[in-house]
């Protein structure tokens, strides 16, 4: 008796999502010292390059710098000129988990698969330049890779990688992040 191969999860519709990009989003506000103070204190990084103007001028950067990964959080701030999705999520469902139903700008269209279980498969960060105080941050998400793998029982699953590039008003790439999720 021949064993039938399981149907592929990497359908043409799924493959077509590779390279799909979201809107370019201009973040609300700019890189500012107060946001950075809160971020670096919560991170527990006391580096004077973030707050000591005189010392920062003596470094190779010549000015205060900001942690590159900070822009990934700064960029997802909820704009005050849009409907507040946090308020909406809890008005709709007081038991909201506070994240699943909260829409953020620049999201990608969903991958058309009936695999619904989502697991974190890993993260990457590439750093190219430090943000400066006053920088305006832009970002764009894209599906950089979708691969199929077979589980131990032979059932196919997907590894979906979402790439996000962050850059400033001078089109200098600050960092690139990639988040991979397993869809089973």
């Amino acid at each position: 008796m021949t064993q039938q191969a399981p149907p592929t999860a990497l359908t043409p519709e799924v493959q077509a999502m590779i390279g799909v990009s979201g809107d370019i989003v201009e973040s609300w506000g700019v890189v500012d010292g107060e946001y950075m103070r809160r971020f670096t204190q919560a991170l527990m990084d006391p580096d004077p390059r973030y707050w000591d103007d005189d010392f920062a001028k003596s470094t190779r950067y010549g000015e205060l710098i900001a942690p590159p990964i900070m822009v990934s959080y700064l960029a997802s701030r909820i704009r005050p000129d849009m409907d507040d999705p946090i308020t909406a999520a809890f008005e709709e469902n007081p038991e909201s988990d506070g994240i699943g139903s909260v829409a953020r700008p620049g999201e990608l269209p969903p991958v058309p698969t009936n695999l619904v279980r989502v697991l974190n498969a890993g993260n990457e960060i590439e750093v190219y330049a430090y943000p400066s105080i006053g920088d305006t941050i832009f970002f764009q998400n894209s599906y950089s890779d979708i691969r199929e793998r077979l589980g131990r029982d032979g059932t196919p699953f997907l590894i979906i990688t979402r790439e996000t590039r962050y850059w400033n008003q001078d089109d200098v790439t600050l960092c690139i992040t990639r988040a991979s999720t397993i869809r089973r």
Partner: peptide, 8 residues
């Protein structure tokens, strides 16, 4: 609070 992550 710093990164505005509201996940409960």
């Amino acid at each position: 609070a710093a990164i505005e992550n509201f996940h409960r």
